[in-house]
Design a protein around this nucleic acid. Structure first.
Lengths: 138, 138
DNA sequence: ATTATATTTGCAACAAAGTTGCATTTAAAA
DNA sequence: TTTTAAATGCAACTTTGTTGCAAATATAAT
C-alpha cells in the first residue's frame, strides 16, 4: 500500500511531508528518529511541520512512537498498517538502532488487586547482531 | 536505613537536597516527579541542583528513573536500597500515579539470532484501584 | 576547634525539544 | 476554475537538559 493510499484512506491531505515520512518508514525496516527521517526527505520542512505531521500520523495510528528514553525518540509504522498493535522494541546500546520485535507478544505481569490494564510498553536494551560481530573497542 | 547512612555509605556528601530527595522517596510509596519531590522539600533548591542531585543519586543506584514517556519522568528508590534491580512499573492514566511493581519479574522475549540482552524496561498503563473505585466522569 | 581541600550549590547562559497563534499557501471538493 | 477547509512556515515562547564558574559548604586533616 502506498503512502498515497494510506493517507486518503484516513482522510488526511496528501502532503509531501506526510508522504515523505511514511515512505521513509516503509523503506527503513527499523524505527527512525525525527532527525534521521528529516535527513532522508527530499525537501526541507519546518520543525513545526514535522512535529505536527508526526502528531497527526500517530493519532491515526499510521505510525507509532517509541520512547527509548526522554532524549531518544524513534518512529515506526503503526498498527493501522498491519503492524501488531502491541509489541516489544529492541534498542542497541552501541549503534542506537531501534527495531520493532513485531512477531513477539508482551507478557503482562499480574497487577495489584483492582488495577485495570490497558496498554504495555516493553523495551529491551542490548547489542544488535551487527554491533556484536563488529568487535570495535568500547 | 536513613538518608544519612545511605549517602555516607556511597561516599557522597550529605547535603540537604540529597537527603531531602531520599527521605521524600522513602516516605512516598510511589514514584514521584521532580516537581512533586521539589514541592515536598523543606527548603528551596535551584533547578540545577535538583538536576545534578538526581543524576548523582541515579548513578549510585540510590534512586532510579522511570520514563513513562518523554514528558513524564518519575523517580523511585533504586536497587542500592533493596529494590529489585529490574521490575515493571505501573502508570495510572487517570491520576498519573507511577508505582514500582517490585515483586514482579519482567519476561524478556526471545531476541533475534545474535542479539545480546542487557536490560529491559516494562511499563504497564491502566487505571489504579483508587481511580477505578472513584467513578468520576472522564 | 580550626584549617585545608575537594564537592556542591546557585546563577547565568545556552541548547534542544515541545507547543501555539497566525497569515499564507495548498490540496481537494464543489 | 473557484471555493474552502486544512496544512505550512515563521515567530514566539515554554519547558527541560546541560555546562562553566565563582561562592558556599561538608568532610578530612591538623
Amino acid at each position: 500500500m502506498s503512502a498515497f493510499d494510506i493517507l486518503s484512506r484516513h482522510k488526511l491531505k496528501r502532503t509531501a511531508c506526510r508522504e515523505g515520512i511514511i515512505n521513509t518508514l516503509i523503506d527503513a525496516s527499523i524505527a527512525l528518529s525525527e532527525d534521521e527521517i528529516k535527513s532522508k526527505l527530499a525537501a526541507h520542512f519546518d520543525r513545526t511541520t514535522l512535529y505536527r505531521s508526526f502528531k497527526t500520523l500517530e493519532e491515526k495510528r499510521i505510525i507509532h512512537k517509541v520512547v527509548v528514553d526522554n532524549l531518544m525518540i524513534k518512529y515506526a509504522l503503526g498498527d493501522a498498517l498491519s503492524k501488531k498493535a502491541e509489541h516489544p522494541h529492541f534498542y542497541c546500546k552501541r549503534c542506537e538502532m531501534v527495531q520493532c520485535l513485531d512477531s513477539t507478544d508482551i507478557e503482562v505481569p499480574r497487577l495489584p488487586h483492582g488495577y485495570a490494564f490497558s496498554e504495555a510498553e516493553l523495551i529491551i536494551k542490548g547489542v544488535c547482531v551487527n554491533c556484536k560481530s563488529t568487535h570495535y573497542n568500547e
